[in-house]
């Protein structure tokens, strides 16, 4: 069947065959392009519950699709494809395949929370966006975002020592995101620090880089935090039907 409006159809739904004969009729090539059906044939009923089980997603089932979140959205103003209202609907009905088309922009939420204040039903769309990004990550659909990599290193140090040590956070973040260590802005910052900071503070900075002191009596806190983090992560993974340690 010749089609002139192919631009209206998603490329993956257009099929041509190099050599195909049906009932004695040759239907090969461009002039016999087939369009795949695009009907939704089932709902994945687990999806809403999975998102609702992750922090921030608890109120997703309240949504009635008014679009206040999308209208209020900072990111939507820049990118029309960023549509929290639409994603919430897909999740509620379990249209996973459709949601995954947008997996590379969902994490772009800037958490300005304008949607949170616009929403008439307290869905807390910002939380839902966070939960959804988390879900995509846990399910292995998306790699860790740069901010997740930063957060992880930051958290790791806090849990270990009760403090962060900036040089280590920065270097590990660069390594994790594949960025070079030598960056112009960073060099300028260090040069200026060395030039202007009192010697006493520079010495303390240097010492902490080398020795990485812990907060006094931190062991007990570390133990408690670790236990809590483990508990939450376990619950999240269980809610998503995932075993083991997975992506992390």
């Amino acid at each position: 069947m010749p089609i002139h409006e192919k631009s209206l159809i998603r490329p993956e739904n257009l099929v041509t065959h190099d050599d195909l004969v049906i009932d004695g009729v040759d239907v090969s090539g461009h002039w016999s392009t087939f369009i795949k059906g695009r009907s939704v044939t089932d709902y994945n009923e687990a999806m809403q519950d999975e998102i609702a089980a992750l922090p921030g997603g608890e109120n997703i089932h309240r949504c009635w699709q008014c679009g206040s979140c999308t209208n209020a959205c900072t990111v939507n103003a820049v990118n029309n494809d960023f549509n929290p209202r639409y994603w919430i609907y897909l999740i509620r009905l379990g249209m996973e395949e459709e949601l995954l088309r947008d997996k590379d922009i969902i994490w772009q939420c800037v958490s300005c929370n304008k949607c949170t204040y616009a929403c008439p039903r307290d869905v807390m769309p910002e939380g839902v966006m966070k939960a959804t990004a988390h879900w995509l990550e846990l399910k292995g659909h998306t790699p860790k975002s740069p901010s997740t990599i930063f957060d992880e290193e930051f958290t790791r140090q806090i849990i270990k020592t009760g403090k962060i040590e900036e040089t280590r956070v920065i270097t590990r973040f660069f390594r994790g995101t594949g960025q070079p260590l030598r960056q112009n802005w960073l060099e300028a910052l260090i040069v200026n620090l060395v030039k202007r900071f009192p010697v006493f503070y520079l010495m303390r900075l240097g010492l902490s880089v080398v020795f990485r002191p812990k907060t006094r009596g931190w062991n007990k806190a570390r133990h408690a935090i670790n236990e809590y983090v483990h508990e939450v992560e376990e619950a999240n993974r269980k809610a998503l039907g995932l075993g083991g340690e997975g992506a992390k």
Binding site: R38, S39, V40, T41, D42, Y43, Q65, Y86, Y89, L90, L93, M95, E98
Partner: peptide
């Protein structure tokens, strides 16, 4: 059940 989900602009055919 067949129809069109008007919010996603897609036909549905759900058991």
């Amino acid at each position: 059940v067949k129809g069109e989900d008007t919010l996603v602009k897609r036909p549905i055919s759900i058991p």
